[in-house]
Design a protein around this nucleic acid. Structure first.
Lengths: 213, 213
DNA sequence: CCGCATCCCATGTGATACTG
DNA sequence: CAGTATCACATGGGATGCGG
């Protein structure tokens, strides 16, 4: 590692040596949602080569950021307390990057975990507090995310469940969150497909989750 | 770039595609201190190969993070407003990494710009507000940093000037900031050498700049 | 299957040298 | 001084293999 050492004694340099390599922060992002198995991580980061995933998991463990935890016959990876302290950094970094998101390219997908973190970033508790409690079920391809907003609290789960509004969406959903695409227009153009419930609730969704672009 | 694309449409992924490559955030860190010339960047990031520096400057420019600015016959690089929005991210990330800083390795140095950002990270305005205005002049090798604390405001300049305490320090100064090394002990062991002024002022320095480890 | 390890090749990185 | 050019090598990417 000496050759790839930045050669500086500095907080940022140290941070980059711990989690600065390719894919590392994305692994942390997914683990912020919850403990994940090797295969789940590989699925969420669908373009990561398996050797790289294995190497990163090893490095992150050595760095004290994550931990291997045996859970009744299967192994899950989870963040250590130190790793969890990256949450504000990742949220702020994600908010910064969100502003530069252009139109989604053809191969770009959204995964439940990436969407979960983006929604956490975009959640506006003070706005939500003034709105009725609402449950949304969002389908991203085969995956479903249950989004429950109750006053200023947000509960995100990767499961099925009763919702006031059920919709299917692709990457274009981000343009609704950025306010560039009005809810009605998103429905009209097929960016969002309402599967169940009143489509107007998508307006409430858009005001609850908002990040300027 | 398609092959190195993460393939996800997500704020964090986008951020990593803009400034996630090796050395990129360190360039941003140094530019947060002020506009810098090519040679100044190369000096501050003393282990960066010149071709990599040139490539990163080009990429960061294309990403809208930095900008080439001609200043009376010389070219300086400076952050765009969007690039400057990375400051809180970099400060938080640096604070996170600071906690994991072990003992400095032999080849690890501190540069004026890295120290400047670490001091900004560690600065405690509310503590400083309760202390008398103080100016410190810190020597890191050949470079000098003038640190002026006046109430809750911090002024850092890369220049010479009158100071209440002038000291020379190496990377070990970070252990004073983390509180692991008491000021008197730092002086006694030669981690910090007092060049001018009362050594007890290093205690004030340590309480003004503090980051838990 | 799941959790990796191995191969091979494209690309990025690093050291050095060089040019306008 | 501000970059380019070149080349050796390390790392990343993709496919595939393999043991538990």
């Amino acid at each position: 590692m000496a050759a790839r050492d930045y050669g500086q004694y500095c907080g940022l340099t140290q941070a980059l040596e711990l989690v600065g390599e390719r894919w590392a922060l994305l692994i942390v992002r997914d683990l912020l949602v919850g403990p994940r198995r090797y295969g789940e991580l590989a699925e969420g980061l669908h373009r990561i080569p398996s050797n790289i995933l294995a190497a990163r998991l090893k490095d992150l463990q050595a760095a004290g950021v994550i931990r291997r935890a045996p859970r009744s016959r299967v192994i899950v990876y989870e963040l250590t307390p130190y790793g969890r302290e990256l949450e504000p950094v990742i949220l702020a970094f994600g908010a910064w990057g969100f502003k530069a998101l252009g139109d989604p390219r053809a191969e770009q997908i959204i995964t439940p975990d990436s969407m979960t973190m983006d929604l956490r970033t975009a959640f506006r508790p003070q706005v939500a507090a003034g709105l009725p409690a609402t449950a949304y079920a969002a389908h991203f391809g085969p995956a479903e995310l249950l989004i429950r907003v109750d006053g200023p609290t947000l509960d995100l789960r990767r499961e099925e469940g009763a919702a006031d509004l059920t919709f299917a969406a692709g990457p274009g959903i981000h343009r609704v969150i950025s306010g560039e695409l009005a809810a009605e227009h998103a429905i009209a153009t097929g960016v969002v497909t309402v599967l169940h419930g009143r489509g107007e609730l998508l307006n409430r969704f858009a005001s609850t989750f908002h990040l300027a672009a």
